[in-house]
Every structure is written in C-alpha cells, then in structure tokens.
C-alpha cells in the first residue's frame, strides 16, 4: 500500500484498537497517580476521625482545620524559611553545578576525568555515613543552626553536575569559539553564550533541585535548632508524631506544603520537558 494512502486511511479511520487500549491504560495509570492527591484534598476538609476512617466525601472542617493548623504552626515563618533555603540553595546549586558540568565537558583533561569518575563514586555513599563528620565541620566553624549549613553541603550536587555535563554534550562548541574570537573571556562566554542557550536545561535542573531543597528533611533536622529556623518538613514531622495526631490538619498542611512545588512545576513544565530532552541523549 502506498505510503500516502496508508496515512490517509489512518487519519480518516476510527481509532484503532491499539489507541483505545492506550487510552484505557493511560487513564488507569493516571488515576492511580492522582488518587492520593484527591484523597489528600478530601482529607483536608474532614475532621481527624473521618480521615482515619477513610471517608471519601468532602467534609465541612476545612476552616476549622486551617484554624487549628495556624494555632500549632507558625505558617508564615516556616514558609518564609523554606522559600529562602530553597531559592538561595537552588540558585547556587545551579550556578556551581552548571559551571562544573561545563568545565568538565568543554575542557577535558586526563586529571579532571579521573576526578570526575571519583565524584560519581561519591554519589553511592549513603548520607547517614557522612552525617557525623559533616555535623562536626559545621560545629567547628560555628555555623550550626544557620541556613548556610543547610544549603552548603548540597550546593555541589554530583547528580546535577552529571546532568549538566550530559546536557553540555549537545551544546555546540562553535558558539564558544565564535565568542572567543569576538573577544569574550571564558567566563563571559559561559555567562553570555552558554547560560542563555541552555535555558531549558536550567529549567529542568531548577525543578529537580527546587524539589530536593523544598523537601529536604534529615540534614536540616540535624543542623537547625531553634523555632525561628524551622522548615516545612520539620513542622509536618513534628505535627504527625503527636500522641493524638489530627489527620485533617495534617492533610491540609501537606497540601499547603506541596502546592508551591506543584505551581513551579506547572509554570515550568514546558521548559522542563525540553530540558530533559537535552540530557536524555
């Protein structure tokens, strides 16, 4: 059958059995993925007892839950703290990791390749193993209970460096060559040529890094000490461990805590997908 005819038939014809199957499959998968979110929303509107009994309809307790939550947690403070750590952390992580990824890929040399392999190895070490020495470092320089201590150890994230190096493979070197000829320094070439042309790579990395700071728990728990430094995850954790946990309040808190990441993701998803495309090669 000639090619054009085949295409035409496909365009005109009814959806094939395969397509119907695809819809059924993808709708089931999506329902599974979304269901817990739906349940979280329902839970936030119910009183604790109904949540633990698995009540599946909306309740009337949303405002009461919010009032209780507000009494138990200083919401503006924890949101401000978490936003601060996340934004500053994401900014520096992207800066340091993209420079490193760019450096490793554009200026290859034997020593750096070895170091790079070594860096990849460090990813395999469980965090629990380095926690004590890390804690001692920050105690020694008197930075316990500071946001700097929360951010610094994750700034040089090896996985993000790896991601940027992979993405740089698809970056055309000629652009930098041209910039050099135009008299730009190497740093200028990085900031004026590389960064703007890798926007979607940055967007994808930004989402992942944002998420990891926003949701970080174990390390902040260890280094932060006072109430004025409390982060969202720490607040949720302390709320959900009480002798008489209020599940409606916890559900509401989880929704509030998750929504900023969702908003960022929705706002940047186009760039995100495009950025993953660059690294996926």
């Amino acid at each position: 059958m000639p090619h054009e005819q085949l295409l035409l038939r496909r365009l005109r014809g009814r959806p094939s059995a395969g397509l119907v199957f695809s819809y059924v499959f993808i709708i089931i998968v999506a329902a599974f993925c979304l269901f817990p979110f739906l349940w979280m929303v329902i839970g936030a509107t119910n009183v604790s007892k109904d949540v633990s009994m698995g009540k599946l309809s909306l309740g009337m307790a949303l405002f009461d839950n919010f009032a209780n939550l507000n009494k138990l947690v200083n919401l503006p403070l924890v949101f401000r703290n978490t936003a601060f750590v996340t934004l500053v952390g994401t900014f520096f992580t992207l800066l340091v990791a993209s420079m490193a990824g760019y450096g490793f890929e554009m200026y290859r040399n034997r020593h750096r390749e070895r170091l790079y392999a070594f860096l990849l190895l460090t990813m395999m070490i469980p965090f629990a193993a380095v926690m004590i020495p890390l804690f001692r470092i920050f105690a020694k320089v008197q930075l316990l209970n500071s946001f700097i201590a929360v951010i610094l150890p994750s700034v040089a994230s090896v996985i993000v460096i790896f991601y940027f190096r992979q993405s740089t493979k698809s970056f055309s070197r000629e652009l930098v060559e041209a910039a050099r000829i135009d008299g730009l320094s190497e740093l200028q070439a990085f900031f004026y040529i590389y960064v703007p042309s890798m926007k979607s790579t940055y967007a994808a990395a930004a989402i992942i890094v944002f998420m990891s700071y926003w949701n970080s728990f174990l390390w902040p728990l260890i280094v932060l000490q006072t109430n004025d430094k409390k982060l969202l995850t720490l607040a949720i954790s302390s709320l959900s461990s009480s002798y008489t946990p209020d599940f409606g309040v916890i559900m509401l808190f989880i929704i509030l805590a998750t929504s900023p990441t969702l908003v960022i993701f929705f706002a940047m998803q186009r760039q995100f997908v495009a950025g993953m495309l660059g690294a996926g090669k």
Binding site: Y102, G103, F104, T122, I125, V130, L152
Partner: peptide, 20 residues
C-alpha cells in the same frame, strides 16, 4: 578548566570526600 570546576571540587572535597 580548573577554574570552572573548582567551586564544585572544593565543596565536594569538604562536604563529601573528607566526611567519607
């Protein structure tokens, strides 16, 4: 090349390799 990777290397050195 060293200039570009130095920040990351220093940070990884202090916060990963030394603890490891």
């Amino acid at each position: 090349g060293w200039m570009f990777v130095s920040f990351a290397l220093i940070l990884v050195g202090v916060f990963s390799i030394y603890p490891v």
